[in-house]
């Protein structure tokens, strides 16, 4: 298939939307890392910046959805063009949600800085955030390079994030049982871990959209679900 449309303005529209997605992706990646760093370094100022910066991410999502609606109305996209428009709408939604989770981590950091740190949990959470951030980077790379193999690799890696969450969950549970004074902090830390785990799910959804965009097929949910948590209840 040829790369270029006969109507070059159509190509420019599609490129513009994808550039917005990449810009949004870059901001979200930074928000994840900043959130983890602000937690680890107990940097309240940085945490505030994340909360303010989330508005830019929300505005970008809005803009992408409007542009996508325009392209549908004016260009009646079909086949790969249609899949591209459908995928940018979903991906922008996923990125916006990840941004919200980062903002929520920043909010909890604002509370946690006034409490005694619980063990070295902040660095464990930072490693988890790092994993999610790399997954997101690879998912966005696979999108730009139209690389379904890299996207499938990202989908596989979400399993590791799920495992990290499970072990943090058990750790926090132990701390709370050991000393009830840890409960408030551990509740917040647990929600942060859960936020990161949910981010991983949204990154997986983005990677699935890449596979759909390139192949026209949504990948099967064959990934083994981490259900070790179920055994703890």
């Amino acid at each position: 298939m040829h790369e270029q449309h006969i109507a070059s303005a159509f190509d420019r529209d599609l490129e513009a939307i994808q550039a917005q997605i990449m810009k949004m992706g870059g901001l979200v990646e930074a928000a994840i890392m900043d959130a983890a760093r602000s937690l680890e370094t107990r940097d309240e100022e940085l945490a505030n910046q994340i909360r303010v910066g989330d508005q830019v991410i929300d505005d970008l999502e809005e803009m992408i959805n409007q542009e996508a609606a325009r392209v549908i109305a004016l260009r009646a996209p079909t086949a790969v063009d249609l899949r591209l428009i459908l995928s940018v709408m979903k991906i922008s939604g996923n990125l916006e949600r990840i941004g919200d989770y980062a903002k929520n981590i920043a909010k909890r950091t604002g509370v946690l800085v006034n409490m005694t740190p619980v063990n070295d949990s902040a660095s464990a959470l930072r490693r988890m955030a790092r994993e999610v951030e790399v997954m997101l980077k690879d998912a966005l790379d696979s999108y730009i390079q139209r690389d379904p193999d890299l996207a499938r690799d990202v989908i596989e890696r979400d399993h590791e994030v799920d495992q990290m969450y499970t072990s943090l969950f058990l750790e926090f549970l132990t701390f709370m049982m050991e000393d009830p004074r840890n409960i408030t902090a551990c509740m917040h830390l647990h929600f942060i871990a859960k936020n990161l785990e949910r981010m991983g799910d949204h990154v997986t959804a983005i990677a699935e959209q890449v596979v759909y965009l390139v192949t026209g097929e949504i990948p099967d949910e064959s990934r083994p679900k981490a259900d070790s948590l179920n055994q703890t209840f």
């Binding site: 298939m1 040829h2 006969i6 159509f10 996209p77 079909t78 086949a79």
Partner: peptide, 19 residues
């Protein structure tokens, strides 16, 4: 045909690419 055509010639034609 309009969401996921199999043949690249079909895809080029329906998406308005030079084919």
């Amino acid at each position: 045909i309009f969401t996921n055509p199999e043949d690249p010639r079909t895809e080029s034609y329906i998406t308005g690419r030079i084919g």
